[in-house]
């Protein structure tokens, strides 16, 4: 056991400050353990959101030394012994209290995405999908909705374009539906016009912070942007449509676009 110093942000929407705590640290301890120890021994009212403490629920997201992290999966021993560890709430979302932010905006975005609507089953009454066809969406479905990718996304974090862009989490959610072998809904026009896929300029910060190691940028965002581009910005297709007076979204619905 040894003592370590933590600087923890305390406050609410009105403002706050960093408070220093000295905590006994044992082998294998993670940041969330230290916060629990502070609650039990020094400040029982320290607000922390957490559930599973096993990296599976995505509740305990916060910023540790400036980096978005799951506090339950961040080992204290990863930091130099003399280093002070600074813990603060996610920057992109409004503060409720101490380390807890209001992430309800994310839940609102999810509701906007048209839900899954499956094909009819095959002649034997069964739905069939092949493993190689679902591998890529299973990667997206590993998402635990910790919203670290949303926190680090420049469009949301620095430019505050929440009204324009749903963020990497939900572009990936759209990708998981669009690439679902059984899905029948077309979300591509909305992805461009309402969900703001064009705002992402592929800095890959979302991929870097993902605790599930999902390759959000290369596997979800870029292919989704490509689908948008193919539909709306392919010059040959655009010219053809102009001559024929077609609306791409309607064309898709009528089955003219594969």
């Amino acid at each position: 056991m040894s003592k370590r110093t933590f600087r923890v942000w305390r406050g609410d929407a009105e403002g706050g400050r960093f408070v220093e705590y000295n905590v006994e640290v044992g082998p294998g301890m993670v940041i969330l353990d230290a916060l629990h120890r502070i609650q039990a021994e020094q400040s029982p009212d320290l607000a922390v959101r957490w559930n599973c403490k096993a990296g599976k629920c995505g509740s305990c997201s916060m910023e540790v030394n400036g980096k978005p992290r799951l506090s339950c999966m961040t080992r204290i021993s990863d930091y130099e012994p003399e280093q002070i560890i600074t813990v603060q709430p996610l920057k992109t979302f409004p503060i409720i209290r101490d380390l807890v932010t209001d992430v309800s905006w994310n839940f609102e975005q999810n509701k906007r995405i048209p839900p899954f609507r499956p094909k009819a089953p095959g002649p034997d009454g069964k739905l069939r999908m092949w493993q190689e066809d679902v591998d890529r969406i299973q990667e997206f479905r590993k998402c635990i909705e910790c919203f670290l990718c949303q926190d680090v996304c420049h469009v949301l974090r620095d430019h505050e374009k929440k009204q324009n862009f749903v963020g990497p989490r939900f572009i990936m959610r759209i990708a998981s539906l669009e690439m679902h072998p059984l899905d029948t809904v077309d979300r591509i026009p909305q992805t461009l016009r309402e969900f703001g896929s064009g705002w992402c300029n592929i800095t890959r910060c979302c991929t870097e912070v993902c605790p599930e190691h999902i390759n959000i940028t290369d596997n979800a965002i870029i292919p989704t942007k490509e689908r948008v581009v193919d539909r709306f910005y392919d010059p040959v297709a655009m010219l053809t449509r102009k001559i024929r007076g077609e609306d791409p979204a309607r064309a898709r619905e009528e089955g003219k676009v594969p």
Partner: peptide, 15 residues
Amino acid sequence: LEEWGAVFDRTPDGL
């Protein structure tokens, strides 16, 4: 659940 969008691991014949 599959009709609602769940993506389970598959058998070789797609079930």
